[in-house]
């Protein structure tokens, strides 16, 4: 997978720091699962977190804190965890592990809802400060023209789309800001499947989507 569009430093740092909304965390974790370059950059920002922890003024722990911790370890079963908890992704799978865990399976178990024009979506559960959803855009179809009040992340999982900014293929992520007004169109060929998160409701420029927006929660 040759990835041309990567995560920004700001997003990687915020993910490493743990200050992003859950919906954004899911998109970042999904991209990093697919992108070795961003995985390596994330390692650097986690190292910065380690440096911050080393320097934080310590707060004295209570007397008996170590003994209490050893008791906790005994209660949990003293043997260390050695095996990675994750099952490997099936060769035929489309969704990386973090996304599969939110969906409860791979693409075949997604409960799609029609949005009009052949476009379908499935909203995934996450904390209320942002929304994350899967989008299914048939080859050649367009998502209604929209701008954003906040940040929108769009991770391509299958197929490709074009908008005013560029072309986004499998593995690519688009980081769209407040100013972006775009009308993503899926390329001919494979249908396009994306994972998208927004931290503010989208702003549509035509009347109809504005009316249906509250129902679709986008």
């Amino acid at each position: 997978m040759s990835i041309r569009h990567h995560l920004t430093d700001e997003l990687l740092m915020a993910y490493a720091a743990g200050i992003l909304p859950e919906a954004f965390n899911l998109v970042v974790a999904t991209h990093v699962s697919l992108c070795d370059e961003c995985r390596a950059r994330l390692g650097a920002y986690e190292a910065l977190g380690g440096a911050v922890l080393e320097d934080v003024p310590g707060a004295a722990v209570s007397v008996g804190s170590l003994a209490a911790t050893m008791a906790l370890i005994r209660d949990r079963g003293k043997d260390p965890i050695v095996a990675p908890p994750q099952a490997p992704r099936p060769a035929s799978g489309l969704f990386p592990a973090p996304l599969r865990s939110y969906v409860g399976g791979d693409v075949e178990v997604v409960k799609w809802r029609p949005m009009g024009g052949g476009v379908r979506q499935a909203i995934l559960p996450s904390s209320k400060d942002a929304t994350v959803r899967l989008l299914y855009i048939p080859a050649g179809a367009a998502v209604p023209d929209h701008g954003h009040r906040g940040t929108e992340l769009t991770q391509v999982l299958q197929g490709a789309f074009r908008d005013d900014a560029d072309r986004f293929g499998p593995g690519d992520i688009e980081v769209a800001s407040e100013e972006t007004q775009h009308r993503p169109v899926a390329e001919a060929g494979a249908d396009c499947i994306c994972l998208a998160a927004t931290d503010a409701p989208l702003r549509f420029s035509t009347m109809l989507p504005r009316i249906v927006q509250p129902f679709f929660r986008i």
């Binding site: 859950e22 965390n25 974790a29 999904t30 994330l42 994750q86 990386p96 592990a97 904390s127």
Partner: peptide, 9 residues
């Protein structure tokens, strides 16, 4: 909140 983590390699 849950914390989604990247897939292991």
């Amino acid at each position: 909140q849950r914390r989604p983590e990247p897939e292991d390699v």
